[in-house]
Amino acid sequence: MARAVTNNRKALNTAIAWSIGLLIFFPILWTILTSFKTEAQAISNPPVFLFFDWTLENYAVVQERSNYMRFLWNSVFIAGGSTVLGLIIAVPAAWSMAFVPSKRTKDILLWMLSTKMLPAVGVLYPIYLLFIKLGLLDTRIGLTIVLMLINLPIIVWMLYTYFKEIPGEILEAARMDGASLSKEIIYVLTPMAIPGIASTLLLNFILAWNEAFWTLNLTAAKAAPLTAFIASYSSPEGLFYAKLSAASTMAIAPILIMGWFSQKQLVRGLTFGAVK
């Protein structure tokens, strides 16, 4: 729809779009700004926007007092572990469905998707009970497995749509050239699919990092990731806005950056290839 327009029109568009963009972004901006204020400035009346005494004190306090690093490490472990584990299981499955489709491929894909739509709360107690029985409650391993399972359908789907775009003839050429199945995957498929695999990895890391049902319900002190850590601020004492902001900023910053890189793949990943 890009057409020649006058500069006036463009300036108007720019002004409107930027205002709306900043308005939507404002809560995040405000959180980041507040994280550099003192607690008194954070609730000062009238609010101060930029002209305050910038301080890193909150970050220091949050790290010291709440063992922030442990929550961070839990988040990294759980999100990273579930994504990598998911990829290891999903790559062969997606390969099969993309390149050796059968009559049932479509049904299997849709069925996988349907497991994603199971409301978590419907199976909360069984999982909770199984976790207790298996000694997985409040462990990183347990949470990693659960998050891997809830994101596995998305990983398979994303990889499937990426693999589908690799022409089957190239893989057949490899076969004709004498490559065995494993060599075909290692030398031809994987290098060609690297961009798709990378964006799948990114998006699923984000989804796992932000997951806030199982992480809240299956962890306590030991394995709690950042989602649970932040939730612990919901019943605070005393002045805490600046510290809440500092903790929040640390929890969302890495993901915001990753998210910006993965925005193009986001659409494909979250609509199961239905919108491209």
Binding site: I170, E172, A173, A174, R175, M176, A179, M192
Partner: peptide, 27 residues
Amino acid sequence: PAKRGLAMVFQSYALYPHMSVRKNINF
């Protein structure tokens, strides 16, 4: 296919896009 000793040229050429020409021929 690998065992038949035949070589094939495909309609879409089916070159390996991530390899140089030399590596393609070397594959």
